[in-house]
């Protein structure tokens, strides 16, 4: 999993009159599946135990998400 690959970001307009401390960079998710129309055969796989835990067999489609990442 290469997380930065699956995240986008942009710099929203920040006004000097904003009431709250501004967030200068906003991040959003670009999940791996949107970069492919058709899964290639023979992709590297997790072990069965790891796959059951992660919800996918293929590391390529596992982009993770956690509140620690602080995306929002």
């Amino acid at each position: 999993m290469d997380r930065p690959l699956y995240r986008g970001s942009y710099k929203p307009y920040v006004s000097p009159l904003d009431p709250c401390p501004p967030i200068r960079v906003k991040t959003f998710v670009l999940p791996p599946q949107i970069f492919t129309n058709f899964q290639q055969p023979g992709l590297p796989q997790y072990s069965p135990e790891e796959a059951l835990r992660r919800g996918t067999l293929w590391p390529l489609f596992d982009d993770g998400f956690s509140r620690e990442e602080g995306i929002s």
């Binding site: 599946q33 058709f38 919800g55 489609f61 982009d63 956690s66 509140r67």
Partner: peptide, 29 residues
């Protein structure tokens, strides 16, 4: 996941979120 501070619930939610990724891919296919 962002509003939950229960790590055990978040573990299940992460699993469910990842399944949505794969389902989206299957529909795209």
């Amino acid at each position: 996941i962002d509003v939950s501070d229960d790590p055990l619930i978040n573990d299940s939610l992460r699993f469910l979120r990842e399944r949505e990724n794969i389902h989206s891919l299957r529909f795209r296919e």
